[in-house]
Amino acid sequence: MVTGGRARAWLELVRGPAALTVPGDTLAGAAAAGGVPRRDAALALGSSVCLYWAGMALNDWADRAEDARDRPHRPIPSGRIHPAAAFGAAAGLTAAGLALAGAANRAQLATATALAATVWAYDLGLKHTPAGPVAMGAARGLDLLMGSAAGGRVPRAALPPAALLAAHTTAVTHVSRHEVDGGSRAAPLAALATTAGVAAAVARPGADAGTAQGCAAGYLLTAAPALARAARHPTGDHTKQGVIDGLAALVPLQAGLAARAGARRSVPVLLTLLAATRRLSRKVTPT
């Protein structure tokens, strides 16, 4: 029987609140493809969530020695989850993610394979190198492309939104490198500049510009205030909040990308997810 405490430990391990930002990748990708079969979209979403959870579990397994020093409350160093169980979960979830993608079509499986390889490379080698934030950004971009591949191919129209999502994620990942001790003004300032540029790209004139512009404003209002505070006062707590709000900002960004592609009905769904992400983040940290 899984106790409440054990369930919470696993929720912390896989970053439960942050996982709520994953469905928007699939929805934005499907919108960029001009709509995809519902079955394949559902398989893409399931694959995406599995690979995200796998990456989070593998991250904590790879960082268990570092976390024992800097984050002893995390599930592995606190003894609530055994390292072998975390690694087994990462491997099993990766296999499940690839199987779900393969059940859809070859393009989706190929994109999922590239995503899984990027996740494992990041966690096991690239994380502490200059390439780490770029790899994390690439993973988010690939996740959107997997949603677009639910139609049987990756359309060219999906590349610009994937690039915007990757740019935001890369910037926030740079900030996250300082969330334990703080001290960096450059990273949150760079993230602020990136956020402004991404918002401008989403809000530019085009299809359903009104909805997209509203989402772009929501994206800025979600990410910018905490990043600005982290830039002014780069303490560990302010920096961590900048990362948390930067993750939450993925949802209105995804909504704006979906709106620009004509999928206006996705917007209220994603904004509901944003509210759920914020509520859960008050109980379980997403970083």
Rank of each mutant, 00 (worst) to 15 (best):
A33H: 10
V2W: 14
G102Q: 06
I81R: 10
H73N: 12
A201K: 01
T285N: 14
D60G: 05
L144I: 06
D123G: 09
R156T: 09
R260P: 06
R229G: 05
L250D: 08
A85Y: 00
A41P: 05
L142P: 07
A209E: 15
A157K: 04
A167M: 08
L270A: 00
L270T: 05
T194H: 06
V172P: 00
R64F: 09
A248I: 10
R153I: 01
P77M: 04
A138M: 13
A224K: 01
A114S: 12
W120M: 03
A263Q: 03
M146G: 14
G34K: 01
G218M: 05
L274F: 06
C215M: 11
A110D: 14
V22F: 12
G125N: 09
P37M: 03
S148M: 00
R264A: 15
A121L: 13
A258P: 11
R282T: 13
D67Q: 05
V172L: 15
E66V: 15
L109W: 09
R38T: 11
G4V: 12
W53R: 11
A162R: 04
L58I: 10
N105M: 04
A263N: 01
L164C: 05
P205K: 03
L100I: 02
T235A: 09
R38A: 15
A7P: 09
L164E: 08
A157V: 06
R153A: 14
H174G: 13
G152K: 02
A90M: 07
F87N: 08
R74N: 04
E66A: 14
L115R: 11
R38I: 08
D181S: 14
A57S: 12
A117L: 15
G79F: 00
A85I: 01
T170V: 08
P286R: 00
A95F: 06
A110Q: 11
A90E: 00
A101S: 10
T169P: 10
V36L: 02
A224M: 00
L142I: 03
R8L: 15
A62G: 03
A259F: 11
M56R: 14
M1F: 13
A230L: 08
L280C: 11
L20W: 08
R140L: 04
A121T: 12
P252I: 07
L98T: 09
M136C: 10
A117I: 04
L142G: 07
T235H: 12
Q254N: 09
H128S: 14
H178V: 01
G210F: 06
D208E: 14
A9N: 06
A258T: 01
V22C: 14
T118F: 08
A276T: 11
A107T: 00
A209G: 05
T169I: 05
L124I: 04
T287P: 00
D63M: 09
A18P: 01
P161M: 10
V175Y: 11
R153D: 13
Q254K: 10
L45F: 12
Y219L: 10
A216I: 02
L189I: 04
A190D: 13
A116N: 11
T129W: 06
V269A: 13
W120Y: 13
L227M: 07
D181L: 12
H233P: 00
G256Y: 05
H174R: 15
R71K: 13
Q213H: 13
H233T: 15
E12W: 00
V172E: 09
A263Y: 02
G242V: 10
A86Q: 06
